[in-house]
Design a protein around this nucleic acid. Structure first.
Lengths: 218, 218, 218, 218
DNA sequence: GATGAATGAGGGTTCATTCAT
DNA sequence: AATGAATGAACCCTCATTCAT
């Protein structure tokens, strides 16, 4: 989504622009983030930023996409468990997600911005589709779980998917950050969070989930 | 938080002010909501609003508190089940909460605004304390559940509380609204949501929770 | 179209605002006119002008309407000839119009701005309707002339109306200003134009028209 | 007015530049037209355009001149009537002009841009001289008509020329476009206008004129 | 000959708050 | 108690032109 101009920039300058913009959009929801602040922190002319990006929307959506790519990359770094059931798969996946937060809190924050509401209608559309994609993914997983027999077949996915979504998105995140006594992924104290924290939190969430969802005795 | 002048106002005028302000702050996050729009919709002088409230912050926080009171009032209207265990208590409580959303979507929305982030530091503090209160309440309930024996004693509440919070806040809300094919409590279609929807959703959430948390076989 | 604020202003301040805005919009077509320049010439804050008018469009359209009112007022000052035929009526009317240009060149200029094209779609609509009204008026006059017998009945008004419109709008104006050796009504030299100039020009135009349109020998 | 570099360009590239610039300046008045948009549509570097033309002004004036040349060329394609009087000559000439509008609406539009006012003083001068040239031409024709005896000798050309100019410029154009139910030569519906329309409109205008101007009974 | 990044002033508009009346 | 005019910085975005490469 950036213009060619942006990629022709010297790597270090491009990097600085990304960093400053990332900081701005990580710290503030889309509507509050300010292009003026970005350029003033960068010490470049306002028009220059408009050479690189068509506007605020494009800059934001590109950052969000970039965040998605970085997250995917980070998640893919560790190979997924093979021959595992639903709970093992989710355990692995969400642990990776938490580790991404600890490793790249600002990118993670920007990724989360994509599910925040906005007054800008186009950004709202982005939000809606992000949310829908997340739920669709969960639904697919749980449906597969039902086929595998690891999720009770009598559960209505219509009801369960959003509930699980709440548990594994906001719930998991809150539990993870709480281990550092923190509420916000950008809080410096969140940097102390590591692999063990992620695993502990995900374990708690998934054993709760497994007991709750699996057929028969837990 | 309003000044004395506000309460000296004729009741109907006071009421209109509340309604218009409510509408504004229900529709937009704190930072986007506009005092200018409120007074212009009211057709009163800007200065007048500043006679009633010290400023935007005070108006907002008062609305949020008022929303809390209205919710409490609504929840208290039905007597809680007596002699019930944790799950029955929560079932009752959260069902009331969902019904409040359906009955007073704008007040419910304003109540939710209190957990949204803001650029205003004082509003952020409000947010933090709201979140903390919600978690404290849950922790107390779950701790009592452990004493009662309805929650496994080996669970770390540090981990479980935020998870359950995610399930019962965002998860429950999403599941409820999804029954009307909706994402936003202010969406007119959300008005079709009724008692059965609330009960169905809360049942699903709490049976998931009970299986997940209760000691022994589910 | 101004807000109440504007009319509550001290008369002299209101007058200054009108004068400066009038000057700006007389000198430049809508798209080139600048609110920034207006407030800077006025020495008031930008926000203040937005207290008086909803925006550039409203300021412009109000000025145009005001110009129309002033012109109507000026035209109505002299009573129209009674018992006159088409040509006498038009002679009187257009002479009044020219005198208005000489008397209030800036208001006249703003009135003409309403038939200039603009990139703003709402302003374009204003333009279209102004043009249509002007032609509708002429068509009605000429149709009446045909009924009276002062215009040849075999003429197609579809063809004749726009032609006459060109003659009596741009043509008449150019001829009038040319008498002061000028092209622009705002040129100071245009102030020397008076009643005799208007009558001479209108006479020339209408005798040309009468010969051209009247049935039988001129 | 273009630099040598422009003419050294491969013909097809030069052609594309002309087309895109033509489109821009046909669609918007000089002050609104944008060099940025032109180069962006062309997909060439901004600096390149500045190699071909000294700037916006030069590009525009060259296009206007080019439009004049194209019009002259088109008009000259059909030989003028020989041995004809003033009215026949003008009939032929203006019919050619209207046909040029139908055949090359964008070039025609750019030609008309030259008589629009602008904030740029140099462009204003261009406008003034275009207008003056048009009137001078008409004056010469009408003067010849007086010598020929086809225009009444008692008419003051000072008065009549601008009037006839209004009739044959704006009036004729309006009448022509009105036959397609259109106001703007670039409106696609204007493409339906053909030879018969042009002749009908010019006939109406010139018979009006002839009756109005010729000595003796019409 | 071609490039295209950089500029920086300018555009219209919105806002919460103050304070003299 | 009520008013509402005034502020002025902030918002996003566009532009013609330059000049080092």
């Amino acid at each position: 989504m950036p213009r060619a101009t942006f990629f022709n920039l010297p790597a270090d300058k491009r990097q600085r622009i990304i960093e400053v913009a990332l900081e701005e959009f990580a710290e503030r929801p889309y509507d509050q983030a300010s292009i003026s602040r970005v350029v003033s922190r960068l010490g470049i002319a306002k028009g220059s930023l408009y050479q690189y990006f068509d506007g605020k929307r494009e800059l934001f959506t590109w950052l969000v996409e970039e965040a998605g790519r970085k997250k995917l990359e980070a998640v893919s770094a560790t190979p997924p468990p093979t021959g595992a059931d639903l709970y093992a798969r989710l355990r692995w996946l969400y642990a990776q997600g938490l580790l991404f937060i600890a490793a790249s809190p600002r990118w993670a924050r920007v990724a989360l911005r994509s599910v925040e509401p906005s007054l800008d209608p186009e950004i709202s559309r982005l939000r809606a589709s992000s949310e829908a994609a997340a739920q669709a993914f969960l639904r697919e997983q749980l449906a597969r779980g039902q086929e595998e027999g690891s999720v009770r077949g009598d559960l209505s996915l219509e009801l369960v998917v959003p509930l699980v979504h709440g548990l594994l998105s906001e719930g998991l995140m809150r539990a993870f950050l709480a281990r550092a006594g923190v509420t916000d992924p950008l809080d410096p104290a969140a940097q102390s969070l590591g692999r063990e924290d992620a695993l502990a939190v995900v374990d708690a969430a998934l054993s709760l989930l497994e007991r709750g969802l699996r057929r028969g005795a837990p």
